[in-house]
């Protein structure tokens, strides 16, 4: 079942930079997809378009049945409630405890406390932080903070989990732990995971679908792929023309 459909999409910034050029790709429910590419390749823009942090200039981006390009600013929350987002810098609220950080995603939906509590505890438990519910983010290690961010992202049982370089700030051992958690989420709850990363080792080891970007162009889309050095975009553009 198709969850994401991107068709002939362009993202051109006001200064004229083309971040994404003629992108067409689709992702099914339950897939685990790596998005790779060097800095400035367009992978982050692609990821940001999926949760409507960026609006496509042209083309269609449909996520869970919602046309992101046509989504009004005041209705963005409708899309965001269907997905979870994890960032490299965790984006936790520093003055809220682990429990509060995870709970407030549900509180904003207006759920009753009786419903929030078991969901939050389950999410925290699933990332192995049961003992740290009352800690503040600055009392946790980087890996633990990222796990809180994952718990917050999955607490609402999203169909899609978007991870923007979630291991970028972590050491290899902690990165492995995070990847194990993400894989568990993917397998146990059939959540689609799209993860942008620079980590070659991780990508090569996991053998998942890989979307490779260069200069705003999707240069390869491989099932059970690896982190390869691709042809330069110039050559591809030449071939296309």
């Amino acid at each position: 079942m198709r969850l994401i459909k991107v068709e002939h999409t362009y993202k051109i910034y006001k200064n004229g930079t083309t971040a994404i050029a003629d992108l067409s790709v689709s992702i099914d429910k339950g897939e685990f997809v790596f998005v790779i590419g060097p800095t400035g390749s367009g992978k982050s823009t692609f990821i940001k378009m999926l949760y409507r942090e960026e609006k496509p200039t042209n083309g269609q981006v449909i996520v869970g049945g919602i046309d992101v390009a046509k989504l009004r600013n005041s209705k963005v929350y409708k899309l965001r409630r269907k997905l979870g987002v994890v960032f490299q810098d965790f984006k936790l609220l520093p003055k809220l405890t682990v429990y509060e950080n995870v709970a407030f995603a549900l509180e904003t939906l207006g759920l009753p406390n009786s419903e929030i509590r078991p969901k939050v505890l389950k999410a925290i438990d699933s990332v192995g932080l049961k003992e740290k519910t009352r800690n503040l983010p600055n009392e946790l290690s980087g890996g633990e903070q990222q796990r809180v961010a994952i718990a917050r992202a999955i607490v609402n049982d999203p169909k899609l989990l978007i991870c923007d370089e979630p291991t970028g700030n972590l050491d290899p051992e902690t990165s492995k732990e995070i990847m194990n958690i993400l894989e568990k989420i993917n397998q146990e709850s059939d959540t689609t995971i799209i993860m942008a990363t620079h980590d070659k080792e991780l990508v090569n080891k996991m053998k998942k679908r890989v979307l490779a970007f260069e200069n705003g162009v999707l240069v390869s889309d491989t099932k059970k792929g690896s982190y390869k050095v691709h042809e330069s975009t110039k050559d591809i553009k030449k071939k296309r023309s």
């Binding site: 929350y77 609220l93 904003t108």
Partner: peptide, 17 residues
Amino acid sequence: KTQIEIKRLVGASNVAI
């Protein structure tokens, strides 16, 4: 600002923010 940004990310409506 970050707090507002995070609230938006987790799906809070504008009014709720």
